[in-house]
């Protein structure tokens, strides 16, 4: 099996996610070891994702806001339930 530089671009994500079949993965690796252009492409692709992952940390609700939300939810749920039973 032979793959060209154009194929490498399309396979980058699958390789990164370890989704390629064994044989194709080997051919992919052989190609990027021999082709400097594709090796650069893969290294920079991986680096871009690494930076992206570390740029946005999960945002957490502050404790006070969380308590406020719990109180709000309990009241709102009661309201919905009361409305529903009034309907019957």
């Amino acid at each position: 099996m032979i793959i060209r530089c154009k194929d490498i671009i399309n396979l980058l994500s699958s390789f990164y996610e370890h989704e390629l079949e064994e044989e194709l993965e080997e051919v992919f690796l052989e190609h990027i070891y021999e082709c400097q252009r594709c090796l650069a492409l893969f290294n920079t692709f991986e680096k871009a994702l690494e930076l992206f992952h570390s740029i946005e940390k999960p945002v957490k609700l502050e404790r006070k806001k969380k308590q406020e939300f719990h109180r709000w939810l309990r009241v709102e749920i009661r309201r919905v339930v009361i409305k529903k039973y009034r309907h019957y």
Binding site: I9, L12, S13, Y16, L41, T44, F45, K47, A48, L49, L51, F52
Partner: peptide
């Protein structure tokens, strides 16, 4: 992902 790479490039 390619967009992110190009952007950094």
């Amino acid at each position: 992902k390619l967009y992110l790479r190009e952007l950094l490039d």
